[in-house]
């Protein structure tokens, strides 16, 4: 069973990658591939946030710090050391995991609202470190001068198409790995700590440990999103670590839906499309986005995919129930 599900994930991932790879061939110009790369960066970030919010019931308002951390750590390693891209990538992941372990150890013990605030406070702390440590990070100017991209294993990320394919691959591999985590025994334990932490505790589950592992895993995937972003813009900016990134992540999850694995991915596409169109049409994008959020939060009370799937489930339930009635 497990092996078959894993195989299905891998095949699905391969198919998705094939579709992504065909995009630049089918649609000319830079716009479509660039859009996909931004979707990859934000999609990885938002899906990783959903590991916490949807599966772990941990509402983090500071998840964006790992997005920013990934972008800065990778950018700095490439600029200041002679490491190859894969080595710098691996080291970035280790750094993010180490930072997340320390921050998570403090945060995951806290109750819902306090968890949200302390994660936000850590995010602001990292943001203010980035702003004030001008010698290392370039302060509010960001990491400038471009990120070098030496060729590794025949892959040249300075080439636009190869960069596109690499980002697409990062997205697909990241999603498949996260889906495996969610479907694993650990994933179900995490859901149990969300639904009833006390019961999980009585059953012998170490709730703090489970939450901490989820926090670190989510941080790692968010950091990969940040790496993709830094490769795309060839730099890193304080905005990447600002609280609004976390706010956007929450909004994306809300748009797409938190009870379906691909909900945040759909939310990412919607938000980026919405952002691009609205900012082109009007300067008052805040009002439009605000009304959309209110529609989802008060009108639907759930994300789009959640809403659609619930509707389908309701239909099925009535379809099954009606013959008995008649």
């Amino acid at each position: 069973m497990v092996r078959r599900a894993a195989l299905a994930d891998v095949l699905g991932g391969a198919a998705a990658f094939a579709v992504l790879a065909a995009v630049p061939l089918l649609i000319g110009g830079k716009a479509a591939p660039d859009f996909v790369i931004r979707c990859a960066a934000y999609g990885l970030f938002a899906t990783s946030l959903n590991l916490l919010v949807g599966y772990g019931g941990m509402i983090s308002f500071g998840h964006g710090m790992f997005f920013g951390l990934g972008a800065y750590a990778f950018g700095l390693l490439m600029q200041r050391t002679a490491l190859s891209i894969p080595a710098a990538f691996a080291l970035t992941i280790l750094i993010a995991a180490a930072v997340a372990t320390v921050i998570g150890a403090i945060c995951v013990r806290l109750k819902e609202i306090y968890f949200a605030f302390v994660t936000l406070a850590f995010q602001m702390l990292i943001h203010s470190l980035i702003i004030s440590w001008v010698g290392l990070t370039g302060g509010d100017q960001g990491l400038r001068g471009g990120i070098p991209r030496p060729v590794f294993l025949g892959v040249d990320l300075a080439n636009r198409i190869q960069l596109y394919l690499a980002c697409g691959a990062a997205l697909v591999i990241g999603l498949v790995l996260m889906h495996r985590i969610v479907a694993s025994q650990f994933g179900y334990t995490l859901r149990m700590t969300r639904d009833n932490a006390e019961r999980a505790g009585y059953l012998g589950v170490d709730v703090v440990r489970v939450r901490l592992i989820a926090f670190v895993l989510a941080a790692v995937f968010a950091c990969v999103g940040g790496v993709v972003m830094s490769l795309f813009v060839s730099g890193a900016y304080p905005d990447f670590a600002d609280w609004t990134v976390s706010g956007d992540g929450m909004f994306i999850n809300m748009l797409g839906g938190i009870n379906v694995f691909l909900g945040p991915m759909l939310g990412t596409v919607i938000l980026l499309l919405l952002n691009d169109t609205v900012t082109r049409l009007t300067e008052h994008d805040g009002i439009v986005l605000g009304v959309v959020i209110l529609f989802f939060a008060i009108g639907l009370r759930k994300g789009l995919l959640d809403f659609v799937l619930d509707r389908i489930a309701e239909r099925r339930a009535t379809a099954v129930a009606s013959p008995e009635r008649g």
């Binding site: 509402i59 929450m250 938190i258 805040g286 605000g290 009304v291 959020i293 939060a297 009370r301």
Partner: peptide
């Protein structure tokens, strides 16, 4: 409701009121 919904409704209010003032 969930804390998430409350935060989002307030987040929407911030976006809207900031823009109204603008």
């Amino acid at each position: 409701g969930s804390v998430l919904m409350q935060l989002l409704v307030c987040y929407a209010l911030v976006l809207i009121l900031d823009d109204v003032v603008r």
